Computed example of a mutant assay.
Amino acid sequence: MISAHMDEIGFLVRFIDDRGFLRVQALGGFDTRNLFARDVTVHARGGALPGILTPGGKPVHIATPEERKKIPEVKEFFIDLGLDADEVRAQVRIGDMVTLDQSARRVGRLVCGKAMDDRASVFLLLETLRALRGQDLRHELIAVFSTQEEVGLRGAVTAAYAVEPTVGIGLDVTLAVDTPGVPAEDAVTQLGQGIGIKVFDSTMISHRALVDRFWNLAQARGIPAQLEVLSLGGTDGAAIQRSRGGVPTLTLSLPTRYIHTVVEAVHETDLRAGVDLLVAYLR
């Protein structure tokens, strides 16, 4: 079983005030410093509504120095739909989903946009299936495109219990903090240096035999790869590993800059390396 998650971090509407402003509940982990003055879409019953997400408070022109330094919590953010309160209540209800707006684009050799976590891995898995089309594999291969990973690995849990795999492989992104202001020891991975082979994160320790197998295969085939130790975070691999009596599992990690923002960036070399290594292992 190979699992990549389709869901993205976002929000749902939790309250509509008497002026028609929406308050939100976060779905996934946000750094609120990246949420100021963002375009959003509210997915209402009658259709998509464009909105502006921003925190409550004074603009910089009239804020005190202390107020300018304050980092708001998610509960302080609101959405302005530009409609009267009655119009908002007629179209929006509690629980409607909210997504951040951002177009994907190429930036040099990077692919940049929102929800690379984890749709870049969805792409990787689709390309793997395309490369294996028509071939006879030694084992049955189940490709899972899961949901609700960002709120607790939920889809992969139910999928793993249904599939009952013998071997599990999670596909997800990982930190590439190879940017100014961060010591090399905290970078986790580096963009353009190959697919990450996860050794450890806070939810799983990859099966050592699988780590060795993938690493040795990458070295033998000349596929760029790097070993990854992530102090926090988790993937679908953890859900597979913990299902039933336990499943030997490994996660392949796509190095990504600016995770959980709308400018998540992955490198084309790492994408290709991920496909090549996964195809080599499955063959």
Rank of each mutant, 00 (worst) to 15 (best):
Y161T: 02
L81I: 14
I94V: 15
R119W: 01
F123C: 10
E87A: 15
A239H: 11
M6A: 06
L22T: 03
L35I: 03
L132K: 11
A44H: 09
A48G: 05
V262H: 04
P65N: 12
Q102I: 01
P183Y: 12
V275I: 15
E8N: 00
P55S: 07
A131P: 05
L278R: 08
F36V: 07
L125K: 14
G170W: 03
A90G: 14
F11C: 01
D86V: 15
K69S: 11
Q226D: 00
F145I: 04
E149W: 02
Q241A: 15
P183N: 11
F200A: 10
D80S: 12
R89E: 11
L232Q: 14
R119Y: 07
G196W: 04
A48P: 12
V173F: 11
G134L: 05
D201I: 13
G46H: 09
M116K: 01
L252T: 07
R23N: 08
A218T: 05
G152F: 07
R244T: 05
A115D: 03
A156G: 00
Q241M: 15
V182W: 13
H5A: 13
G51T: 09
Q25T: 13
E150C: 02
L49P: 08
F36L: 08
F214T: 00
R19M: 01
L12S: 13
V88K: 09
I142C: 06
V144C: 14
T99F: 09
A280K: 08
P255A: 00
A184I: 11
T249Q: 12
H5R: 14
L175Y: 15
V173P: 05
E264N: 05
L230A: 15
Q219Y: 03
V122T: 05
W215Q: 14
S243D: 07
V151D: 10
V88T: 05
T269K: 14
G196Q: 02
R242T: 11
L110C: 04
I16E: 00
G155A: 08
G155W: 06
A90L: 10
R221V: 04
M1V: 14
H139G: 06
L141T: 01
H139T: 09
L191Q: 10
D186P: 01
D101C: 06
D136G: 06
D172A: 14
V88N: 04
P255S: 03
G155S: 09
V211Y: 02
I240R: 01
L153P: 01
G51M: 02
L252K: 07
I197H: 06
I195C: 06
T269H: 13
F214M: 05
D136S: 13
D136F: 00
Q219T: 03
K58L: 11
V107S: 11
T147I: 14
H260R: 14
D80C: 08
R89L: 06
V60R: 07
G246V: 13
D178L: 07
T147P: 03
D276H: 10
